[in-house]
Design a binder for these strands. Structure first.
Lengths: 335, 335
DNA sequence: TGCAAAAATACAATCGTTTGCACACTTCGC
DNA sequence: GCGAAGTGTGCAAACGATTGTATTTTTGCA
């Protein structure tokens, strides 16, 4: 069973390949009648376009590259689903690369995507990434770039972020309303905007409540489970605190494990709020109050932005996806 | 900045493109000296091969398609990582497709991959899939196919499975050793081999212990959280049982939630073991005893098998990855 | 009916590699 | 010193689509 090409269709129909090509592309330069004829014949002969030939000629492909730190994070896998939902029906393919939060792998992934002439790149920075020339390279090659969540605002292109500030603000307000006062913050890398914004939201809520945020109350780079556990250990030893707002669910988990180990009652003696609504947040004990980021929606928007770019309307704009606070046990009333 | 092609290199060096092509491919038909010359020049000029042109000419690409039910399952995302670990260094790219357990989407994904002339396809069937002609199509096109975990043994090609039988057997043995006797099984779709094997392992362990497995003790198609909850509800109403071996962690979770809701003590009055070691298994309360499938290793093996196929050594063999039982709270001693 | 404008289609080059075949030049055994 | 291998390169035709520029056909209008 040989592959059918447009040449075969052309021969069969007594027209030229160019006409077939244009007909299939829906070009109005070929008559409605011929278009129908070609479409039917193509159908009949079981024609399947050769994507490579087209890409080679056009100098770019309908494949979009998606670069994320890790796909087994709930947040990212949902973003991926959201992206797919928009991209696939639109006829684009997705190739996904993991960086494992490693700057070097991120560079390599981007380089590979460019080498493969992807039509565009959707990317979320790894925490480690400090140099951004690989992104500049993308821009300078005029390959559309959409950043999401962990973005670098200085690089050209569309950006989709979640409302980190509001999320953090709501989380801390909630803790305050439940009666907690000495609220500390387990932050991420404050060099990354997402984490900086969460920190700002925390600070704002605290200051509005007339509470001062001392440097000792902020633990930077504390987003892993281990880091959360350790930081909480230090915290209990050093200072008076009755609640923590964590920039991620994993550090919240670590914090809770430490608190449980020390016999501190959650909630009541200590309140905990996380960020991300990882699947385990609902299932752990006590269940974790956290901020839902609507990753799926972010994926949708990132993909839509990409399609807009591909269609030539470069917006270079930033879109904010709303978040919501999911109240669970870990932040119940202070007693 | 124009793209450098082999023609540019050829011109610069005063040889022909064919020689450059062969030199870069390491063909021994061109002298060692020329090879070195070409390599250096390519380096110097910043040459980057155009993958599409090569693929077009060769009629296939260095891209491997990976089709999985959902990427946000711990198991699958780890398999993906495992596959990447092997494929990327070997110079292959991965495009990942989600089927969402939907047979139709699975067909479409495979069709798209074939249309894009991928070099090979690694796939795990969706539970829903009943017809396999899309896989036959892959085989008949001579595109290497590696199935993993949820496989169809009747389709040609390599297969990587985990030792479902042993996993299930160990799990049930463990429950028996802890003193449970009336052990039921929440199974998956027994039409799928993976689930059928888990059922067999369960049966074997029970029979060895001199316990009969009645049809009423097996709940088929019970792998979701909701299904687990419901089934447990029925179970408690209808019959005497003191433990359940679930073919997946999600149904185990549902079962535990139902048991907790009814005030049944876990462990003690009721033992629960799951399968898959989802991340939440460790964190829920009580923590869930479950079977670790070594997804990462499976991914490695699937990728290695694929590379073997691509290198022309079609083995058409089946490889079994060992599993291990992770003992946690939910299966503690019967009282 | 004739003729210019518009519509539809054809021609041919091109995208960047790969590869079968031909060709020249060594090398060697006899 | 003469064919026969053996080496290293060049030639040119693919691969299958796209697209700017002809060229033909159709249409509209006087």
């Amino acid at each position: 069973m040989k592959k059918i090409t447009i040449n075969d269709i052309a021969k069969e129909l007594g027209v030229t390949p160019s006409t077939v090509s244009r007909a299939l592309a829906g070009n109005t330069r070929v008559s409605e009648k011929t278009r129908k004829l070609v479409a039917d014949k193509a159908q009949e002969m079981g024609y399947e376009p050769n994507v490579m030939a087209a890409s080679l000629r056009k100098g770019k492909s309908d494949t979009i590259g998606l670069v994320v730190p890790r796909i087994n994070r709930h947040f990212f896998s949902n973003v991926i689903s959201g992206v797919e939902e928009v991209l696939n029906p639109a006829g684009y393919n997705l190739v996904i690369c993991q960086t494992g939060e490693d700057a070097e792998k991120e560079r390599k992934a981007v380089a590979t995507l460019l080498r493969n002439r992807v039509g565009g790149i959707i990317l979320s920075l790894s925490v480690q990434t400090g140099l951004f020339d690989h992104l500049d390279e993308v821009v300078s090659r005029k390959v559309p770039l959409v950043q999401f969540d962990r973005i670098n605002p200085d690089v050209e292109g569309d950006k989709i972020v979640n409302d980190n500030f509001s999320g953090a603000y709501m989380a801390v307000r909630h803790l305050l309303e439940e009666g907690y006062r000495h609220i500390v913050h387990f932050a991420g890398d404050l060099g990354l905007r997402a984490y900086a914004e969460r920190f700002d939201g925390y600070k704002k809520a605290m200051e509005e409540a007339g509470l001062e945020v001392l440097p000792s109350m902020v633990f930077e780079n504390t987003i892993t489970r281990d880091a959360g556990y350790e930081a909480m250990g230090k915290l209990l030893a050093d200072q008076k605190a009755d609640a923590v707002f964590c920039a991620g669910d994993y550090s919240a988990l670590g914090a809770i494990e430490c608190l449980k180990a020390k016999g501190v009652k959650i909630p009541g003696d200590f309140g905990v709020v996380g960020y991300a609504n990882e699947p385990f947040a609902e299932l752990m004990y006590p269940s974790l109050t956290t901020v839902e980021q609507n990753a799926f929606v972010m994926g949708n928007k990132a993909a839509s932005a990409m399609i807009r770019c591909l269609e030539g309307k470069a917006f270079n704009m930033e879109e904010v996806v709303p978040v919501s606070l999911i109240k669970r046990e870990s932040s119940g009333k202070r007693r």
